[in-house]
Amino acid sequence: MSSDTSGDVRSDEFDELPMRIGVGQFMDPSEKRLRYIKQLGVDDILLNMYQYDPDYEHMPDDERMPLEGDGEWSVENLVALRERVEAAGIRLNAIENVPISFYEDVMLNGPKRDEQLEKLKRTIRNMGEAGIPIFGYHWAPAGVWRTGSDTVRGGATVSSFDADDLDDEYTHDREYTEEELWENYEYFLEEVIPVAEEAGIKLCLHPNDPPMERLGGVPQLFRNFENFKRAMDLVPSDNHGLELCLGCWSQMGEDVAEVIRYFGERDEIFYVHFRDVDGTVPAFKETFVDEGNYDEYALLALLDEVGFEGMMIPDHTPHLEDDTDWEHRGRAFTVGYLRGMLRGRVAETRGE
């Protein structure tokens, strides 16, 4: 694979790839994990870069940050990271997540908002120069919430959520209004989107999880179809779109097919988290990709129909017997299932 550090050239290379299966939700691209990913028949990954253990062996030494870290990544270290991945015959498509310090300073207009935004803008510029074309982010100051665990097929364990089990404590200093969150979000877009456009980086918005109206005194803006439409229209850009988490959309109880048609026809689906749940807010549990609320093959076929050409990764997966913390066994099942569906779709539509 090419080690060209030109963002424009590498973005074009990614744009020419077909719809395909990848993996993500890990931080440390060790040789062992990269070999395992390649063994699954996967050629594409994304990395979660900010919330990680500072003792991971394979992170660049001068970029090791504590779990609450708010640092930025240099061009040199991003190139080294990409080349480590490419040496295993794998493409580094994206980086996901923002620093924890963003929750209060940027999302809730804290005292270091502009300082944090400048760091992110430098990282986005550096990603463009290093040839990593996508940055996935969320707008969830209250974080991701689950209230317990449950079991699914064969006793595999999954996380669950039930609003009846919530307490009323604030996650931050007070209760925030929806108007405040929209104002802060628009400011973020106005600052960051021009930088992403200049750097050739695509920004991808993830839904709130769970998509409740509010949690811990903080509104969950990205809980429904209408709010996502508003988000995409606030600062219109070809470089801003969706990190389409099918599990979160399933939790919302929205018509997921309508969502895919709407944003797919606008070319605003940049990559997909492919998972499902049983139930919708205010109570649901995660499950195997073949046992949830929606018809998984119908949605994959629809993604193809609307012209989506990007990476689909297993998101949260059930914890299987003798699994690891990363659920490598659960992910292997989902990867194989998605690969089979994709191969069937290609054969169905292209005669291959």
Rank of each mutant, 00 (worst) to 15 (best):
A347K: 15
E96S: 06
D168T: 14
W249T: 09
W249R: 02
I37A: 02
R266S: 06
H172C: 08
R153N: 09
E258P: 00
G89F: 01
H319E: 08
R122T: 11
E321A: 08
N48E: 10
G241W: 02
V42L: 01
E226R: 12
P207A: 06
G69A: 03
M252Q: 10
P111I: 12
L117C: 05
R113M: 05
L320G: 05
F228K: 04
E186N: 11
A88W: 07
F102V: 02
N48P: 01
R261D: 13
D150T: 14
T334Y: 13
I313C: 15
P18W: 00
D233W: 11
F26H: 07
R91K: 15
S159F: 11
E96T: 14
M252H: 05
F263R: 06
E178V: 10
P210C: 02
T280V: 14
K285S: 15
I313S: 14
I132C: 04
K38N: 05
D70Q: 01
F188R: 00
G7T: 09
G253P: 08
R146L: 03
K202W: 05
E291A: 09
L234F: 10
P133V: 01
R20H: 14
D114M: 04
L215C: 06
P18Y: 02
A199N: 01
D62Y: 02
P29V: 00
A142F: 10
R91Y: 09
V152C: 14
K119I: 03
Y103R: 14
V98R: 15
T324M: 13
E57L: 06
N48C: 10
G89R: 09
P141M: 02
G155F: 09
R153E: 13
V195P: 09
L244K: 09
R230S: 01
M27E: 15
D290P: 13
D168C: 12
F225P: 00
D62L: 01
N97H: 05
K229E: 14
H206M: 08
E348L: 10
M1Q: 10
D70K: 13
A80L: 00
D12V: 10
V75W: 09
L342G: 06
K32L: 00
D114C: 04
V289R: 11
I134V: 15
R230Q: 11
H316Y: 05
A94G: 09
R331V: 14
P211I: 01
H316K: 10
E16D: 12
M107A: 05
E198P: 04
K38G: 06
S250D: 01
R82I: 02
D150F: 11
R331G: 10
K32C: 00
G247K: 05
D290V: 09
E197F: 04
V281T: 08
V259I: 13
R35Y: 05
W182A: 04
F284G: 03
V158A: 03
F225A: 02
L17F: 04
G143R: 07
E115Y: 08
E83D: 15
E104G: 14
L215I: 15
R113A: 06
S250M: 01
R266P: 12
G136K: 06
R125Q: 12
V277H: 07
V281S: 03
I21E: 00
L17A: 05
E86K: 13
T317N: 01
P211V: 04
E31S: 12
L17G: 03
R345W: 15
D173Q: 14
K285A: 07
T147D: 01
R64N: 08
